[in-house]
Design a binder for these strands. Structure first.
Lengths: 350, 350
DNA sequence: CCCGGGACGGTAAGCGCTTTCTACTGGGGG
DNA sequence: CCCCCAGTAGAAAGCGCTTACCGTCCCGGG
């Protein structure tokens, strides 16, 4: 049924070995022979059998990309960058690689399951994005899986998450702590003193780092005491911001600012504030985090910290291909950049 | 180095065939034997070699998903739905499938290239999303590629794009025409008469259908004459909306409404209007299309048409697995739903 | 008491490709 | 003038798995 290498070989009057060599270009083949082969390939519309070559060569051109949810632009942007980077047929030997996107939904089990599935596919590399779960047993299981992947020849890269201690997988991470700190310092600088914080889900590194940055700024300003009373936890979605903001308003009617764990949460908070008739930023200032594309289109535009998601993805993609050397220490820290926009202003009583 | 089926067989004291049968569960194996095998698998941490089984069984568990850009929520949401659907280990025979996401960037060549790469991987199915390019030669090439994929045993599904005439690939499509028409009728109903339109790129079915819907509404209202003067073309991104809106304002200062090809373009337009000091909706009403998550958080919230992106993706995923039968006629049309929000209001002179 | 057949399990032949290892050629240096 | 090597091409041995195709073994019916 399907055309095989052998068919091409017969058509071109050469051996299968030669056809393989022409196609892979890793062995000298005389010009005339090569042309005959190429022509036969063309005429027969031959398409290599990927699994067969993967089996024989013990490599595949699949790169796994684990994300929480590809529908979320935070992950979408990174994944897009990774994909574009690895899909580009470099002058380098192997052809373009394909990105296998895996939605973990933040579930540790699914994360492990997908890693196994990727190992089964003999993925050439795996890019892990998103905040890590801070759970010792999961951490151990994860390291085990990644170790086996690496042992099987896969390249493992962490993107947008902190390095895994005791391992030396290259990592491209964001400085969430510093970013959060800048944001809160910005609010403090404007004169805010009663600042609510909408934190992400428990046991996530991203959540913890951002919260720590926020607290560090407060503490430095001598406002550490109120911090936990003015912190509400929720997931990283819009409704968490909505209900979280209402909760904060109830807890502390004198609130003049809300710092959200990310832009999506911030928009939810804005919606809640508007419904309550609270003006932004006149009555309450709001900050986000990530600077996703829509942050600038909110009204008022969201003050936030821009994370170089695309750049990080590109870098992770290059590391995954082995095109770039791992950064010194194995970790590349990408700083966030404060973007001051309309959603923050001095408090009224300032 | 790596553990193979044979190793497991030895360990369990059975033949490789038996191990394979236990793992695939498609042939009777006595309970005791099965358990011994399973235990050996466990102890050896055996992971099937995907390429090898793909080669032997002539099938893979890869599903290709072609999108314009996975960073765009429009595609991200559909891809996410497809992925979740196919990743679920159904009670059905084959294990969970992996989604290979391919960013075409809207380029026809890349589209074809990716299809070839997917065929090389012997993908079990391919889901094509996004508007189709209206170009005869590309259409022919595309049908050729898809036909070969199908001949190779892959299931081809179109999602969020019109069916390919003369083929019978199942399709899940959006009624862009009706949606656009509703939007413009809504504006007309409010009393608008000078309505600008920000169209998408040329030669895309999505662009054409939405524009046709808009024009149909205008024509029905006896306003067809001005239509082309008040139409500006651009890509589907924010800056196209920004510059397009400025252009429209210049062409027709008396404009009272702008209908954009999608939400992203609409937000760009809003930004331009705000900069010009034009109030929304008091001076100019604006409508989007798609109802992406951020549409509701714009201020004012965007009047738009909600497209069931997630549902369409789920459905496409099921079709790709062969879990659902193709709809009668092969095409499932998903209607859009008008969402009237704050960005539209009667014109001032109404 | 014998035989047919169902339930299991093993044997072995590939699946289509890569990659040694071997073979052959022609030309230039000794 | 012969030998050796660079340059090419082929033969063949797998890569790890699936799956006919056969044997066994044991049961119940005749």
């Amino acid at each position: 049924m399907a055309v095989t290498l052998a068919d091409v070989a017969v058509r071109a009057g050469v051996s299968a070995a030669t056809v393989s060599r022409v196609l892979n270009g890793n062995y000298p083949v005389a010009g005339a022979t090569r042309n005959r082969v190429l022509q036969a390939v063309e005429e027969l519309e031959y398409v290599v059998n990927g699994p067969a070559s993967a089996l024989a060569a013990a490599t595949s051109d699949l790169v796994g990309v684990l994300v929480n949810d590809i529908a979320d632009p935070f992950f979408g942007i990174m994944a897009s960058a990774v994909q574009s980077e690895i899909g580009e047929p470099v002058a380098d030997r192997p052809g373009p690689k394909l990105a296998v996107v895996c939605n973990t939904g933040g579930s540790p089990e699914r994360e492990l399951t997908f890693l196994t599935l990727l190992q089964r596919q003999r993925a050439a590399s795996v890019v892990l994005t998103g905040g890590a779960l801070e759970d010792q047993s999961h951490r151990a299981a994860l390291i085990g899986r990644l170790g086996r992947l690496e042992a099987a020849g896969a390249r493992v890269v962490l993107c947008g998450r902190p390095p895994l201690t005791d391992t030396d997988f290259p990592a491209v991470t964001f400085d969430n702590r510093a970013g959060a700190r800048q944001l809160t310092e910005h609010l403090l600088g404007l004169g805010h003193r009663r600042i609510g914080y909408l934190a992400g889900p428990q046991a996530r590194t991203t959540t913890r780092h951002r919260l720590e940055g926020h607290r560090a700024a407060l503490t430095a300003a001598g406002l550490g005491g109120d911090a936990s009373r003015l912190t509400v936890r929720g997931s990283y979605d819009r409704s968490a911001g909505y209900y979280g903001a209402l909760e904060l308003l109830d807890r502390e009617p004198g609130l003049t600012a809300i710092a959200a764990a990310n832009d999506t949460v911030a928009l939810g908070a804005c919606a809640a504030l508007r419904e309550r008739g609270v003006r932004i930023p006149e009555d309450v200032s709001v900050t986000g985090f990530d600077d996703l594309p829509f942050a600038v289109d909110a009204t008022p535009a969201l003050t936030t910290v821009r994370l170089p998601l695309h750049e990080a993805g590109v870098h992770a993609g290059r590391l995954a291909l082995g095109r770039d050397e791992a950064p010194e220490g194995g970790v590349l820290v990408c700083p966030g950049e404060l973007r001051v926009r309309g959603s923050t202003a001095p408090p009224r009583d300032a």
